[in-house]
Design a binder for these strands. Structure first.
Lengths: 256, 256
DNA sequence: AACAGTGTTGTACTTTTAGCAACATATACC
DNA sequence: GGTATATGTTGCTAAAAGTACAACACTGTT
């Protein structure tokens, strides 16, 4: 197996910088890796050009760059969430018999990134990759209620049940927080009710929402609290799978 | 400035993989970067050796690797908002000649966590670590306008200009969102005007605010829009430094 | 079974890179 | 201030590394 040595050296530099608190100088890095100062200098410039390292202040010491953060976050938020969520979506389908969805927030909307269809004959069709408004979908309301995005846009009506009054919506969101799951009662599509709950990552940051949606005839208002609790518990299990630790929040709050 | 080309290619692969949800194959990567399959293959092996990429399941497609997460997290823990903000506070002082501040939200108040004093003779004294109300300071208004915290407390007056009417404040906050910066026009301390703008982190979450404050004689209402735009742009640059990418949301939506 | 599509190896060619300087700049110490 | 020590960057050429073109192994498809 061939190795591209120049690349390997660059990667070694990154690993080296991880273990230094205040950054390292060109010479220091060169010594650690047993390469010449000039090589280290050129490697560092290349890394800096792509944002993988950064020169601190007076163009002296090098630190890890923001690009690593971008890539790392990207990895964390996208790849893991969807993969981890899949079995939980199946679990929801098994327990409720309805279609299950996973969404994240994007462009102030809810972006559906995964879906597991129920085997039931009457099922709600939906497409992965579509954007839906936040104020009238269960997944969207979860993001408004548990997330950090203020309500910027107008509350456009889609059905006669769509909540268009901000204070009514605010009250609903408070209720949503209290009960731990959000409801869409035919507010986006006639004949469709949805329930959704928040998914957190290891830092306790809201990363998405999972939920179910089904015809109002099956997802009745009498049963909706049972559905809600199932979704809530499943979402909580998924959060735990993502490394979320409820105790962590308390610790952090105490610190700040 | 010399560039190590092999290293650059490896880094380009990482950037490429960021924008693909399901990973990419060797051939696909090679085409995108206009390099040979064999080169791509060897570069990928090297990246994989150091954990920067990973082969998915049946040794076919490549994905971003866990090492990026490690480095990214490391960076995140190490570098704080305050460290990042400092040069930008200096920049504000240089450009405006006024005192610059950094604040975060804590306990429903604005907590001043850093300050850079201007060299001007008439300067506003302020102490790091102090808490100020949200409704009558520029930094606080930023948090109300761009953040997620509803207005809980009563709007206590500090000067005769303090806004105590909730709907007036709400209108001001809408205005604040539209123009991108907040103003405190002698609403907390007589003779002091402040301007502040929001700072976001890599996830697009509001993490704090930076702003300037100075005597009303220098920070006049005529000049306040100029100050505002300077603060806004500087805050935006700081956000970018924190990993915030305004285009990210669009990119994400397009991919899935 | 042939085919189109991957991904990984050999090998000779040629380009890039490493190492050695010199240079520029910064910091410390009499 | 001037010398000394250390650092970071830049020319230059030998030498080593990487590239391209194959051939090969493997998969799934028609």
């Amino acid at each position: 197996m061939a190795e591209i040595q120049s690349l390997a050296k660059g990667l070694k530099i990154l690993n080296l910088l991880e273990h230094s608190r205040n950054g390292m100088g060109t010479t220091e890095i060169a010594k650690q890796l047993s390469i010449d100062k000039s090589s280290a200098s050129r490697l560092l410039h290349t890394l800096a050009n792509y944002g993988f390292v950064e020169q601190d202040e007076h163009s002296t010491r090098y630190l890890l760059g923001p690009q690593l953060l971008t890539l790392g976050q990207h990895l964390l938020n996208r790849i893991t969430l969807r993969d981890h969520a899949r079995p939980y979506l199946h679990e929801l389908v098994d327990k409720t018999g309805e279609c299950a969805h996973l969404a994240i927030q994007a462009q102030r909307q809810a972006l559906y990134i995964d879906q597991v269809e129920s085997t039931a004959a009457l099922r709600v069709e939906s497409e992965i990759g579509t954007l839906s408004p936040l104020h009238c979908t269960a997944l969207g309301k979860v993001m408004l209620a548990f997330g950090d995005c203020p309500i910027h846009d107008e509350l456009r009506p889609f059905t006669h049940r769509t909540v268009t009054d901000p204070s009514t919506l605010a009250a609903q969101l408070t209720q949503t927080v209290n009960r731990g799951y959000a409801i869409d009662d035919e507010e986006y599509n006639y004949g469709v009710r949805c329930v959704a709950a928040p998914v957190y990552d290891h830092r306790g940051v809201l990363v998405g929402a999972i939920g179910i949606s089904g015809p109002a005839g099956r997802v009745t208002l009498e049963r909706i609290d049972d559905f809600g609790n199932v979704v809530k518990e499943t979402a909580y299990a998924l959060s735990a799978r993502m490394g979320f630790d409820a105790g962590l929040q308390l610790t952090r709050a105490a610190q700040d």
